[in-house]
């Protein structure tokens, strides 16, 4: 789950623009957000209709294509691992000692009752590769000045036809993102909060996802520690690592 969140973040942070202004802005964002690799310890809180629950995990990722996460708590999920590699997704569960591949329509299901689908977490293309971007206007969002950018799909095989992204004008990090259907119907909203400086870069450490068609209070993703540009052994991103 964490892992998906990370991917989404990575996704968000890989923003590139086409329009002159937009491109510059997204480039800066990209520089600010991307790193060779990172190791994140995080907690995710899913606000269900009846109760909320929190999972903690540790995730190693390299670029947008490779990631490996391991759940630390709660007890029921401890030891569950997820591997994303070459556009495929595997889940390992220690209780069954099985590696299960998530594919086909299963990718379209919601992950653990959260407001994210597996597919959301699998998206690993850079924004500038799949969207045309332009700045609509500058706007104040939670006391920060932002560029409001409009992204429109330029490729066909994409889940969300258009997006709106609010980029901090000073720190060049995204603060809010909205995902739209072709018709313009708002489907999902992501808020990025608690921006902190880590290893010399500004980084939002809390992300709240909300499926706008669903009742509920969304899913909250909080990064407790982030390490950029670490030495990550290559075997981590292999199926063999899942069973270890």
């Amino acid at each position: 789950m964490k892992k998906h969140s990370l991917i989404i973040i990575a996704f968000l942070f890989s923003i590139h623009g086409f329009a002159q202004d937009a491109k510059t802005i997204l480039d800066k964002v990209d520089r600010n957000m991307s790193s060779k690799n990172r190791i994140v310890e995080s907690s995710m809180t899913i606000h269900g209709k009846r109760s909320s629950r929190t999972l903690t995990s540790k995730t190693w990722s390299e670029g947008f294509e490779k990631s490996f996460s391991q759940y630390l708590s709660p007890a029921a999920d401890k030891g569950t691992k997820m591997l994303k590699l070459e556009g495929q997704l595997w889940i390992y569960s220690p209780s069954t000692d099985r590696i299960i591949q998530i594919s086909g329509h299963l990718l379209r299901q919601s992950v653990m009752g959260s407001d994210l689908s597996y597919e959301d977490m699998m998206e690993d293309r850079k924004l500038n590769d799949v969207y045309n971007a332009k700045v609509i206007r500058e706007e104040k969002l939670n006391d920060r000045n932002t560029f409001l950018m409009q992204l429109t799909a330029k490729v066909e095989n994409i889940a969300y036809y258009s997006q709106k992204i609010w980029i901090d004008t000073e720190r060049f990090i995204p603060l809010q993102q909205e995902l739209y259907a072709k018709s313009g119907q708002l489907l999902k909203r992501t808020e990025l909060k608690d921006v902190k400086q880590i290893q010399g870069r500004w980084f939002p450490t809390t992300i709240v996802y909300k499926d706008m068609l669903k009742q509920g209070n969304g899913t909250e993703f909080r990064m407790n520690s982030i390490l950029f540009d670490q030495k990550i052994p290559e075997y981590i991103f292999s199926k063999a690592a899942l069973k270890q």
């Binding site: 269900g48 889940i91 569960s93 209780s95 009752g113």
Partner: peptide
Amino acid sequence: FTLFGTTMDGGMAFRN
């Protein structure tokens, strides 16, 4: 076989 589903509180459920 492994049953893969959703737990009551939304988590991933596995059982052989």
